[in-house]
Nucleic acid binder design. Structure first.
Lengths: 143, 143
DNA sequence: CGTAAATACTTGCAACTGAAACATTTGCGC
DNA sequence: GCGCAAATGTTTCAGTTGCAAGTATTTACG
């Protein structure tokens, strides 16, 4: 057998992803935000308003799930749903001041978290890793 | 701001992981196996019987979830639960012949799938990627 | 040896998820 | 313009998940 499952890319990717996600989730739990919520906030904060569909693909979350999530985030005062006059079937999600402040705070935590993990890793290697991950995503999309 | 969320490691990792998982899940759906089930089968097939706890950490799935999953896999005749005489509180999960045959078939698909993604990527780069992913997991475990 | 603590797993329950059905708005062909 | 198909979100419902509590077995300790 020339194939070893625990050396396969999907396995290693999942393992690292789950571990990272779980650990980071704990760090932000006290802000009453889940990891996907943080991702939404960070993206809105750094790239401005987005439609549900755009957000869905950016954060890799099903649209139905995201729709509900935006509902609870709206109740929490972190984002607002806006129906743009020029296109009535789109919903534009915008971050509130409160949401932006929270995003800033959480991104500080994320920065430190990432440094803690990549910290003593060769900077070039870290960059290489990210480049490869981007390539993987692209290749799958084209598949 | 010297931090760009969509360039962060957890984001890129999640994005690639979700995309890979979704695509591969579709490829094995017709065998009536979910992705986590495939992982269980592959590990059992390649490394022999495992306790629930071991499996849980190997496949990154909660033990309660896994316990139920093993239940349905047992009903499907893919694995068996065995209570070893020497330690009655452990449950040893063993793969059946049917499960082994399925695992072999699915691993062939996984092999081709991985080749399709890493195919035209530099072999050294692919290896580097895996090494880095392993390092990430280790660093988090120690965190 | 008997009881308390630890280990390993299972189950109950509330919350969450994904697929399908539904609703609304837009654009296209005529 | 009018009807119909496509685009975009929302809601419903059945199935799944994770946490906490429960059960069973083994180990430790007085």
């Amino acid at each position: 057998m020339d194939y070893w499952f625990t050396d396969s890319l999907p396995y290693l990717l999942n393992r690292a992803g789950v571990a990272l996600g779980e650990t980071f989730s704990k760090r932000i739990a006290r802000y009453d935000v889940t990891l996907p919520m943080y991702r939404v906030l960070a993206i809105l904060r750094q790239t401005g308003p987005k439609s549900l569909g755009e957000l869905s693909s950016l954060v890799s979350v099903e649209m139905s799930t995201l729709s509900r999530m935006i509902g609870t985030m709206t109740k929490a005062g972190l984002v607002t749903r806006i129906r743009p006059p020029e296109n009535g079937r789109v919903v534009s999600i915008e971050i509130t001041d409160k949401g932006a402040a929270l995003a800033d705070e959480l991104m500080q935590i994320a920065m430190r978290f990432e440094r803690g993990i990549l910290g003593d890793m060769d900077a070039a290697a870290a960059h290489e890793l990210k480049t490869l991950l981007r390539q993987i995503s692209q290749r799958i999309d084209r598949l």
